[in-house]
Design a protein around this nucleic acid. Structure first.
Length: 159
DNA sequence: GCCAACGTTGGC
DNA sequence: GCCAACGTTGGC
């Protein structure tokens, strides 16, 4: 029997890969490559499981916001962009024989009708302890409490 | 193993 | 574009 479903948030810069881009992918599924932070990697490599649910967040944009949800459809495997010299995330220390970086595949569930801006989330008591809202938080893959995930769905008027 | 210098993230 | 917060690197 599968372990309990977990909840996550992943950040992406919409200028490089937005949730709309995810929607355009075959099967609306994409590999979440390019993560080059150990803590974020560890979450993907060690803890993300099939069926886990994911909030998608747009960062470094005019109005940073949670914009929709996705699900983990493939558990971690080596991030091959790390050994592509032309890739922006190339890392000579990672090789096919001894990969340093990992990724998962996620599939779009829904794009919120209206995005939930950071500023709005800050005012929500149920989200008071959310990692995303912590000052100086930079983790690009982070765990989310079930209660937080549900509160966000509720705010988005989604299910 | 400390920590200063540097690079990056990301809100504003 | 600014800059605070954070992660990484490398000299010692």
């Amino acid at each position: 029997m599968a372990k309990e479903q977990k909840f996550w948030l992943v950040k992406t810069e919409p200028e490089s890969f937005s949730i709309q881009d995810l929607a355009k992918e075959p099967k609306q599924t994409a590999c979440w490559s390019g993560v080059r932070n150990y803590q974020a990697r560890n979450f993907m490599r060690d803890e993300m499981q099939l069926g886990d649910r994911v909030l998608v967040y747009h960062s470094s944009t005019e109005e940073p916001a949670v914009v929709g949800t996705a699900a983990v459809v493939r558990e971690s495997y080596a991030d091959d962009t790390a050994w592509n010299k032309k890739d922006h995330h190339y890392d000579a220390a990672s090789t096919p024989d001894n990969p340093r970086w990992f990724m998962v595949d996620i599939k779009l569930e829904q794009i919120f009708e209206s995005p939930l801006p950071l500023a709005k989330l800050r005012g929500v008591p149920a989200l008071k302890h959310m990692e995303l809202l912590r000052k100086g938080s930079r983790l690009s893959v982070q765990p989310v409490r079930k209660s937080e995930f549900e509160a966000i769905l509720k705010l988005a008027g989604a299910n």
